[in-house]
Design a protein around this nucleic acid. Structure first.
Lengths: 249, 249
DNA sequence: TTCCATTCCGTAGATCGTACGGTAATGTTT
DNA sequence: AAACATTACCGTACGATCTACGGAATGGAA
């Protein structure tokens, strides 16, 4: 797992929050800018995965020497921070409807976001980049949950629980598709390659509940469908449970 | 994010499911065994993180040349698969109580597991190693959810939703502690380093809900506490929601 | 004793991030 | 116009890392 939040704090915060500032006019005119570097890095990661997001490849995508990047960004860790916040800023979070509709809107937006940027799943979210994207999301969800009337401590925990579930479920969903493009092998083919498992290794007596569920048609046709199904059902259950808490206060 | 399930299928399945087989007696006597390699790799990752789990370091921990490992394991990807399944096999899943007690038992066990092996968070769970650990977990949860009386398709989706949430929440919890030991910097110090943010950058007017929640005491004292709080509340809400579904069938 | 299946491992090539120091290009000053 | 200050560009090199290759070592079998 890639870790973010490891660079020099002040410098990273400056890069995250700086407005488009005017150049002093002095010195050599830049061929690239920070924004273009982040954009190129995101494009590489979207296309070929986070492992392929190397300084070499980002520089090549910009038609620039590798070491040029270090003029604009302190290092790869900081670049990752900027990529994450740039992605989060893509969320279109406009309040509409009751708190539940707003959370569901957030969930859909996040699902789409991970679909566009499946590499997000591979970045640690402890010690996240303290940028505009993170705070916009947090403010939106806290504002939505305020509509439940829950006390502040519970509302805050509910937001964190929602974020945890939605990020994980959306990430898993997106990762299925990414695994197919990166490996060049469809999930169906991946399972076909492991057909021997069911034929020669799996012991129905050892796993009766799995066998029973199989016989009862409990398994979705594809792994991606199962993930989507779990996302939908899980979010509904989670929000139902949170709604039930409001009647106790 | 590290990816598993990338190696030769038949070979990996053989390694995952092989019983302790007898040696033929011919050839040079081995200094190491597959089991010891996996054990050492897990120990290195526990101690120093997944990034530090290099073939060099694992071999060194065993007092053996790096290339010796490749006699016993096809490559690093397969070793990772074996590590993950070995970890999952540590779960002590004995059915006791009703379905809800069983799921809560699973959640506690998983939380402890991630605490012992925080690197688990960094391994992709799409295309997982099809080993005994995974199937034991799945069978346990499907068996528990059978107690709800939900139809098979919904029970299966509920299991996936629970796994998604519990893995994410437990992983986040464990990652807090790991971040402290790996970086040598406590979470409190990390925030102190970013104090400037609140003093110079954060704009209360731009994020009213965050500011309001702050004033209402909505934030936990520490990030780790917030994560634990979210885990507890989220699991309760999720299970309440699932329980509510059973009354409709 | 000879053979040989099996394990051990040194070397080397490719791919990373990035420290270092030099080069190039512009506006400003003289 | 010439020199300077400032900024951006980037070639080289070093240390990790995974692993392909092939040879050396070992000890039972023939």
């Amino acid at each position: 797992m890639e870790h973010s939040g490891t660079g020099d704090p002040r410098e990273t915060l400056r890069l995250l929050w700086r407005e488009n500032q005017v150049r002093s006019g002095r010195g050599r005119p830049p061929k690239v800018s920070l924004a273009k570097i982040v954009e190129a890095a995101v494009a590489v990661a979207d296309q070929d995965g986070l492992d392929a997001m190397t300084m070499d490849k980002v520089a090549a995508a910009l038609g620039v020497g590798t070491m040029t990047l270090y003029t604009h960004v302190p290092g790869k860790a900081e670049l990752l921070d900027l990529m994450v916040d740039a992605a989060w800023r893509e969320l279109d979070l406009v309040p509409a409807g009751d708190w539940r509709a707003q959370v569901e809107h957030y969930a859909r937006q996040t699902s789409n976001l991970h679909e566009r940027h499946p590499w997000l799943r591979g970045v640690s979210t402890v010690r996240p980049p303290l940028g505009p994207g993170l705070f916009a999301r947090q403010d939106f969800l806290l504002s939505a949950l305020a509509g439940t009337g829950l006390p502040a401590a519970q509302a805050s925990a509910a937001v964190d629980a929602i974020v945890t579930f939605v990020e994980a479920a959306a990430g898993a969903q997106a990762e299925h598709r990414q695994a197919e493009t990166l490996s060049g092998q469809s999930t169906a083919d991946w399972w076909t390659d492991r057909q021997v498992f069911w034929e020669e290794i799996f012991d129905p007596d050892r796993y009766p509940a799995i066998t029973q569920s199989w016989q009862d048609g409990g398994f979705d046709r594809t792994a991606a469908q199962a993930t989507t199904h779990a996302f939908t059902l899980g979010l509904k259950a989670l929000l139902d449970g949170i709604a039930a808490m409001t009647s106790q206060h």
